[in-house]
């Protein structure tokens, strides 16, 4: 494949991926409001459009026309670029997430991912940790006490759980013997890693909730004590950009959990040719959607942690457990 065609394909795939992501975020948010409402015995948004389906559109218009406030005591430049960092670093890992096998378009074979690099997991770990800068800079540059506390909490929480997140992924990497996400999925054609790596799976899941600042680990934005946390001073779309980043991060960690632990696009494939081509992508989306539903379900069910419990749980329980999992996995593999 010539380089120009390769880059053109990448551009088209990037545009499609970003378009899908933006609309997906809008509707995950609607689904979240609906599901949490049902859990709390309410109806949820149902006035704008049939079943409230146009609600995200109405919210976007409302946010866009809201006043764009910059506090007079804020650090102007950092205050402006903090939400941009959050969104950019959330969008970047999507570029290496594979959603299916190769497809054939216009006589060329191209993988169903924007690009395939052989250090996929390492890249994702690196870029998602850069997302901390968005939160820390937002809280610091706002020069508000609530924002500052929220960003301190958020920064410490994210870096603490990142350790457990990284260590949980070492087990599956050992089993697969590669950092390439497609390679890890192909290595699971016999058994999904959720079975031999059940401990790592639950460590990863817990750490993923904390990494995305989702309930029960939503202390950086604890409404009752911090106003809104690191985005207290943000208004209009700048405010929404933090939520955009949070939901894209949710999608990313769901996709990684699917790829590394639930066998990616492996699933029951049957029927005529076109169905066989679509089914792997369908299985992938179904598994990722399951994790997204889990995020919402847990938010509607569990109360928030206390901060000392949160840090203690991360450092004194998850990190030693993840290290033990690495040791046991390596012992079992080397004895076989």
């Amino acid at each position: 494949m010539p380089i120009t065609v390769f880059l053109l394909f990448a551009l088209v795939k990037s545009l499609i991926a970003i378009g899908i992501l933006l609309s997906l975020v809008a509707y995950i948010q609607l689904a979240e409001r609906k599901i949490v409402a049902r859990i709390q015995n309410r109806l949820g948004p149902n006035r704008v459009g049939p079943f409230g389906l146009l609600q995200p559109l109405a919210d976007t218009v409302k946010l866009l026309t809201k006043e764009d406030i910059m506090p007079s005591t804020a650090h102007k430049l950092l205050y402006l670029i903090a939400p941009a960092i959050a969104v950019t670093m959330a969008l970047l890992p999507i570029s290496i997430i594979p959603v299916g096998r190769d497809i054939h378009v216009l006589g060329y074979t191209t993988p169903l991912q924007i690009t395939n690099i052989n250090i996929g997991i390492l890249f994702i770990l690196a870029v998602t940790s850069l997302g901390v800068y968005g939160i820390v800079l937002a809280g610091w540059s706002s020069n508000s006490k609530y924002s500052f506390l929220g960003s301190l909490r958020g920064g410490s929480q994210m870096i603490s759980y990142e350790l457990a997140l990284g260590l949980a992924l070492v087990g599956p990497i050992m089993l697969a013997g590669t950092l390439d996400l497609r390679g890890i999925v192909e290595a699971q054609s016999h058994i999904w890693y959720v079975i031999p790596q059940i401990v790592a799976f639950f460590i990863y899941l817990t750490a993923a909730f904390a990494e995305t600042n989702r309930s029960p680990f939503d202390l950086p934005e604890a409404e009752g004590e911090l106003g809104a946390g690191y985005h207290t001073e943000y208004s209009s779309m700048k405010f929404a950009m933090f939520f955009l980043a949070e939901y894209i991060n949710m999608i990313t960690v769901s996709c990684i959990a699917t790829l590394v632990f639930l066998g990616g696009w492996h699933g029951w494939v049957f029927g005529p040719g076109w169905l066989q081509a679509i089914l792997p992508v369908f299985w992938f989306c179904l598994k990722a959607a399951f994790f997204l539903f889990l995020f919402i379900w847990v938010r509607g069910t569990l109360p928030r942690f206390r901060y000392d419990q949160l840090m203690g749980f991360g450092w004194k329980f998850l990190v030693p457990l993840a290290l033990a999992n690495v040791l046991v996995t390596s012992l079992v593999i080397s004895l076989r």
Binding site: L7, A10, L11, S14, L91, S95, I114, T115, N116, I117
Partner: peptide, 8 residues
């Protein structure tokens, strides 16, 4: 392979 990341 890294160029598409720059595009993204």
């Amino acid at each position: 392979n890294y160029l598409p990341i720059l595009i993204q």
